[in-house]
C-alpha cells in the first residue's frame, strides 16, 4: 500500500468514532508494552512482603497482590508478554495462511483438497481444547508451546478466507487481462491475486489478535501457558481469584480489565477496517 492509499484508509477510519476509540485503546496498551520499565513504578516480579494485598492507594495505583507486588507495574509489564505472544502468533499464522490459502485456491484440486481437509481436522476440535492438548503435548512449557498451540488454531479461518478470496478473484477480469499480456501463472498469483486478497485477511488478523490475547490469558489462567511469576494478565487473574471472595477484588480486576480493553480495542479496529476495506461498503 502506498502512502496515498494509507492516507485514504486513514481518512475513512477516522470518520468512525468507534474505530478511533479502538485505536486509542490499542495505543495505550502498546505504549505500556514499549515503555513498561519507565512507566511501571516498581519491579513487577519481586514484591514488598510487608505490604501484601493493599487496596488501591496513591502509592499503589491498583493496589498490591498477595506477594506485595505492585499490580499497576505488573499490568504494565503484562502488556509486553501478551502483545508479544499475540504478535508472534498472528504474524506466523498470517504468513502461513497466505501460503496455504494460495496453494489451495490456485494449485488445483488435489492441493485444494489436501489443504482444506487438514484445515477441517483442526476445525473439528473446540479451539481451546485443542490448544490445551497441543500445549500439553509439547511440554516445553512456557511461551513456545503456547505460541505453537495458538498459531495452529488461528490458521484455519484465515486459510479459508484467503482461499475464498483467491478463488473468487481468479475469475476476475483483471486476472484475465494479466494473462492476456503474457503474465505467468506465478506472477498472476503473486502480483494480482495475493495483494488483492489481503484486505479481508488484515481484518481477520486484527480480530485474531484480540482472540489470541484472550486465549493466552485463558490458557495461562489454567496453568498451560506462561508460567508464574511472569507478569501475564491471565495468570494475574488466576492468582487473584481466591482473594475475590475475601474482598480483595483489585488483584483480579485490573488485569481482567486490561484483557477486556485490549480485546475490545482490536475488535473495534477490526470492524472498522472491515467497513473501510470492503469495496462494496467503500464510498467514492
Amino acid at each position: 500500500m502506498s502512502g496515498r492509499r494509507v492516507a485514504t484508509v486513514w481518512y475513512q477510519v477516522s470518520q468512525n468514532t468507534l474505530t478511533v476509540v479502538g485505536l486509542l485503546l490499542i495505543t495505550i496498551v502498546v505504549v505500556f508494552a514499549i515503555f513498561a520499565p519507565w512507566i511501571a513504578p516498581a519491579n513487577p516480579v519481586s514484591g514488598d512482603l510487608l505490604n501484601t494485598t493493599q487496596p488501591p492507594s496513591s502509592q499503589h495505583l491498583m493496589g498490591t497482590d498477595q506477594f506485595g507486588r505492585d499490580i499497576f507495574s505488573r499490568v504494565v509489564h503484562g502488556a509486553r508478554v501478551d502483545l508479544a505472544v499475540a504478535g508472534i502468533v498472528v504474524s506466523v499464522a498470517f504468513v502461513m495462511s497466505v501460503a496455504l490459502g494460495a496453494l489451495a485456491g490456485f494449485a488445483g484440486r488435489v492441493a485444494d483438497e489436501l489443504v482444506m481437509r487438514s484445515m477441517d481436522v483442526v476445525f473439528s476440535f473446540p479451539p481451546l481444547i485443542l490448544a490445551i492438548g497441543i500445549a500439553v503435548t509439547i511440554q516445553q512449557g512456557g511461551m513456545l508451546s503456547l505460541v505453537v498451540a495458538l498459531t495452529v488454531i488461528a490458521i484455519p479461518p484465515m486459510v479459508r478466507i484467503t482461499r475464498a478470496e483467491i478463488l473468487h478473484r481468479k475469475e476476475s477480469l483483471y486476472v484475465e487481462a494479466a494473462r492476456a499480456i503474457g503474465s505467468s501463472p506465478l506472477r498472476v498469483l503473486a502480483v494480482h491475486l495475493v495483494p488483492n486478497s489481503l484486505p479481508p485477511l488484515v481484518v481477520q488478523a486484527t480480530l485474531t489478535f484480540g482472540y489470541v490475547i484472550l486465549e493466552t490469558a485463558g490458557l495461562s489462567f489454567i496453568g498451560v501457558g506462561v508460567k508464574p511469576p511472569a507478569p501475564e494478565w491471565g495468570i494475574m487473574v488466576s492468582e487473584g481469584s481466591p482473594y475475590v471472595r475475601t474482598g480483595e477484588w483489585w488483584i483480579s480486576l485490573f488485569p481482567g480489565l486490561m484483557i477486556f480493553v485490549t480485546v475490545l480495542g482490536f475488535n473495534l479496529v477490526g470492524n472498522g477496517l472491515l467497513d473501510v476495506l470492503n469495496p462494496r461498503r467503500r464510498r467514492q
Binding site: M1, R5, S172, L173, Y174, E176, A177, A178, A180, V191, H192, P195, N196, P279
Partner: peptide, 14 residues
C-alpha cells in the same frame, strides 16, 4: 485485448 468493463479489468491495488 481491451475489455468492456475497464474498471474491473484493472488490478484494484495497483
Amino acid at each position: 485485448i481491451v475489455f468492456q468493463d475497464a474498471g474491473q479489468s484493472l488490478s484494484p491495488m495497483r
